[in-house]
Design a protein around this nucleic acid. Structure first.
Length: 111
DNA sequence: TGAGTGACTGTAA
DNA sequence: CTTACAGCCACTC
């Protein structure tokens, strides 16, 4: 715990960069860190993510709130996303690709 | 030190 | 189209 150079810390750094009203996938964050195969670790890291990390903006590759059960509330994650202006139906983000935000795309120029 | 686990992803049938 | 299986890395006990 004394060393913050863990993989988790890097995940938090990316998660904090997620703008409001946007969502991303675990694989996208993992890929941004250069460890695309460690997507599971990303989700696992979210379980220990501090409150300053919008973990509710992180979903799986299909836009489903896979980690909503890890939130204190039953549907808190969904409520938070809806509060961001997103539409959640059946624990799934509607127009996920439309609200998808890539952590690596921040270096790219928006078209 | 070793084995187990996981908020995932991609490919196959 | 849907369902199933295997791989993968980093962390904890």
């Amino acid at each position: 715990m004394t060393d913050k150079s863990t993989f988790y810390t890097r995940v938090y750094a990316i998660a904090r960069q997620i703008p409001p009203g946007k969502v991303t996938s675990y694989g996208a964050i993992a890929r941004a860190l250069g460890a695309a195969k460690s997507a599971r670790m990303v989700g696992y890291a979210m379980g220990n993510s501090p409150e300053d990390v919008p973990a509710h903006r992180v979903v799986n590759r299909v836009g489903i709130l896979t980690g909503k059960h890890h939130f204190p509330g039953t549907n808190l994650m969904q409520q938070l996303l809806e509060n961001e202006g997103l539409t959640i139906i059946n624990d799934q983000v509607q127009d996920f690709e439309q609200h998808f935000w890539s952590p690596v795309s921040e270096d790219y120029t928006q078209e």
